[in-house]
Design a binder for these strands. Structure first.
Lengths: 235, 235
DNA sequence: ACAAAAATTCGACTAATAACGTATGACCTG
DNA sequence: CAGGTCATACGTTATTAGTCGAATTTTTGT
């Protein structure tokens, strides 16, 4: 079984097994950087069909549809030089995570963003009204290393599971770059946590508001404590 | 992501992506060693529902159904001591195949059993009328080593992809044990090739007829030639 | 701020599937 | 050969996925 088949199986399995296939479909479309219209054309259907799937109007897509969807993703990626496939290949089977990724976890059940905030003694500095959304996991990143080391397409490592997750940045000095990175990326986290500063950069917050991403400042002292608290959030 | 989730994704992805989800569903049910009735009960539906899926009467099961199916497989396995999960774990990511497995391949498209037969200069000695069925891959096994070395649950390695495949036994002396092994196993190959004998054991053939498995005797001289021809069958 | 593109929502229709119970047949066991 | 298990086949009905095109909202680019 080649890398292509492996990735296909992963995507298909993930779509089917996820609580909300619609969101997972959307996530992968965004990972592949295709618009609904382009995807629809590649499938030979009208754009609204894609919208229907992603909005959850059609909640349980048949396996035939999922298969065509996955095939289309791979096909489109090939037409674009197989960037995603190569990125996936690069991360290898159980490949070691870059040093930039300090911790990563999927929750066994959805957890409210507000609960994550409380767990790390955080306070909301943007979009506090969106904190009742569900979060399905988190990724803790070393800000500096992430910027220096992470190859451009390695967001698959970070968003590989669900995009409805918390992105936690440690060692933050200003609090702008994380948001610039998010802004550029096609795929958005469900919430962002900054650790290491007392107040966030205004421009960063502006971006967050624009993208409707809640931003939390963690009040914990050390990075170790932060990770420890996050690990216990499901308890 | 734990082993359990990994296996779940694999199964789900494989079902969805396969040309005939029905057969893949059946394969996995057999791997987990559950009867249709037991599976149906675990799902809270009537047994005919399972049959309908496996027979292909419902060709494109919705993702909700696939998810419930996979969950049921895992659940049932847990009730039985997680045997399958452990076996899967044991084979590891890209784990090395046992020395008993000489070659293994998935065809990019279905190939008629008769074509496989011709490629290896074989002649049918049982169920020759079933040779127009589709074959999706093959596994070449060293008969002696397979019997001596293969742990009982490692059929996942062999049947891991599609069960609609050719099982090729080399170094056969009598031609009985392979069929005994197949008989005992809950999961059946699409065809069996024996290499190394001039005529097959009558009892072995009887079993094959019972299970409707075509049996081919390969006329090629060496094992190397056999593998070479098989590799070229897709050409 | 404005126009263009993309994404989403909606209503209505068709085709397909989910689900059920029962009947049938093959096979093993006593 | 009778009884049990397992798998399959059939007929039916309620439900839903799937489709389309038009209208609407959101996002993007200039």
């Amino acid at each position: 079984m080649g890398v292509k088949e492996d990735l296909s199986v992963r995507i298909a399995g993930e779509i089917v097994l996820s609580r909300e296939p619609c969101k997972t479909i959307k996530k992968w479309r965004e990972v592949f950087g295709v618009s609904q219209a382009a995807l629809a054309e590649s499938l030979g259907v009208s754009p609204s069909v894609i919208c229907d799937y992603e909005s959850g109007r059609r909640r349980s897509p048949g396996s035939r549809v999922v298969r065509r969807l996955v095939d289309a993703f791979i096909r489109i990626d090939e037409e674009h030089g197989s960037k995603i496939l190569k990125a996936y290949e690069r991360m290898g089977v159980g490949g070691s995570l870059s040093g930039a990724v300090l911790d990563i976890m999927e929750f066994p059940y959805p957890i409210k963003a507000s609960k994550v905030m409380d767990a790390i003694q955080g306070k909301a500095v943007a979009n506090g009204d969106l904190l009742n959304r569900d979060i399905y996991g988190y990724t803790v990143l070393d800000s500096v290393k992430a910027i220096l080391e992470l190859p451009s397409e390695d967001f698959i490592r970070i968003y590989g599971l669900t995009s409805e997750r918390a992105l936690v940045f440690t060692g933050v000095s200003l609090g702008r770059s994380p948001f610039v990175a998010i802004r550029v990326s096609t795929i958005k986290p469900g919430m962002v946590v900054l650790h290491g500063i007392k107040e966030a950069d205004p421009l960063g917050l502006k971006i967050a508001k624009r993208d409707k991403i809640p931003v939390i400042l963690s009040g914990l002292d050390t990075q170790e404590e932060l990770i420890q608290r996050l690990r216990e959030v499901t308890g």
